[in-house]
């Protein structure tokens, strides 16, 4: 990881964005990494089509920075946009994104991590929560429709 991205990770780790529980959440998901005890809980509330996000958790720098960076990406997005971000994140792990030209700093910051499978679990924790939330969000939409 280069110095610039290291600094970004450290910044988000020390000053996590959108940190704190939500009272009025529509969805929440808590994920644990059993190998190190890290845990992250992600909350989402809805205002019409738009989503607001926050998280709480304890973990290493990558785990918490990843959650914090995810918050920035998801804030005020519609479900379609959230799903697109989730898909982009997935394809990053599958090697489907060229990091040199990647638009999102998170993807770039996390380049190089794929070679550390143990730590990739730290990074993915918040994203697993997102997966679970999207499942609930989708089933909510189906039941409303």
């Amino acid at each position: 990881m280069n110095e610039e991205w290291k600094a970004l990770i450290l910044d988000h780790y020390k000053h996590p964005r959108f940190y704190g529980p939500k009272e009025d959440f529509a969805f929440a998901s808590e994920q644990h990494n059993r190998t190190c005890g890290d845990h992250v809980k992600v909350f989402a509330s809805l205002e019409g089509k738009f989503s607001q996000w926050s998280f709480v958790g304890a973990g290493c720098s990558l785990c918490l920075a990843s959650a914090s960076l995810m918050m920035e990406l998801l804030q005020n997005q519609t479900k379609d946009a959230v799903e697109a971000i989730r898909d982009e994140n997935r394809s990053m792990w599958d090697g489907g994104i060229d990091f040199e030209t990647a638009s999102r700093p998170l993807w770039q910051a996390l380049d190089g991590l794929r070679q550390y499978p143990v730590r990739s679990r730290c990074v993915k924790l918040a994203w697993q929560a997102l997966d679970e939330i999207l499942v609930s969000w989708n089933s909510l939409d189906i039941s409303i429709a």
Partner: peptide, 28 residues
């Protein structure tokens, strides 16, 4: 300092240490 972060800093200095629950969760 989370043990993962310590181990990663060590790795940057070519030092291999173990971080985690060491397959002994009850003891942890």
């Amino acid at each position: 300092i989370h043990p993962h972060d310590l181990a990663a800093v060590c790795d940057g200095e070519n030092i291999a240490i173990r971080a985690g629950h060491h397959c002994a969760q009850p003891l942890m």
